[in-house]
Amino acid sequence: MKKVYQYIVMGLMAISFAACEEELNSKSIFVDPVQDPEAYTKQFDDWLKRNFTDTYNVEYLYKLDDSATDPNYNIVPVRLGMADTVAHLSLYLWYDAYNTVVGPHFLSTYGPKMIQLIGSSMINAAQGTEKLGYAEGGIKITLMKINAMDVNDVEQLNHYIFQTMHHEFSHILHQKKTYPKEFETITPADYDPSGWQYRYDDNIADLWKREHPAWEMGFVTCYGSSEAHEDFVETIANYIVQSDENWQYMMDHAGTKGAAAIQRKLEMCRTWLREQYEYDLDEMHREVQKRQGDLDWDKIMHLYE
């Protein structure tokens, strides 16, 4: 009898689960984004779709969704005009440079899937630091402090955008294929994740020359002296965007030991990029320098249909 009851209980349970099976609601929780043909940003959005989404499979996010950022920081969105300018500059100074040097498929394969723009930086007042960009999981690159940028100043463009883009993109590259462990043995003692920001020479306003205390320790920038993987991508990014003159200035002011360490790191980056990605770092440097030297706004703003 006991068994019978048990079977009945099991049977009831089976029935009850079957009865509770509910048909899924076919209505999505999201409203279909109906394209408004008169939308204020339609022209720009269509242009972005053609030049970024269709060409490189990348979403260019300029309208800020604060929930997609770190809630611990106060940030603001980007100005529409700056979003437009930076989009054009990115195609000219970044995408086209990679297209020329490593071929048109490189960025659609390895490139970020999202580029997010933010108007301000993320300021950590307690530490005296500000974040100008970050990369997440090889998928998304966030560029910051766009509103404050003087687009006619190449040094600033590099400091706020392109050095950051090459930096973050190099993170993506080494997250896919690890960089050589020997890199971490060149200047192992001087990495300081919490004190690197005190290494700048605050008496110097020039964004490059104020990095000189790091040079003497064998890093191309103070931020590079924070951690080895930052050092690795800072070496690549700065080699690309800094002029020959700036690079030489650094080597001349790094002292024998510092210059030797930087040279060794550069060689390692060069070899790694060539072997892993068939990417010629020197050619990239030359291509970017050529483009930086020829910032013809009229041309750039009409270059992409």
Binding site: K63, V78, A83, G119, M122
Partner: peptide, 27 residues
């Protein structure tokens, strides 16, 4: 959400140099 920068509205949310500014919202 005011999702692109407006000089009047976002002036209250701009972190300025101290990371806080006027600590205003735009969402």
């Amino acid at each position: 959400s005011f999702d692109t920068y407006n000089n009047i509205l976002h002036a209250w949310a701009d972190p300025q140099t101290d990371g806080d500014g006027y600590l205003g919202d735009y969402e």
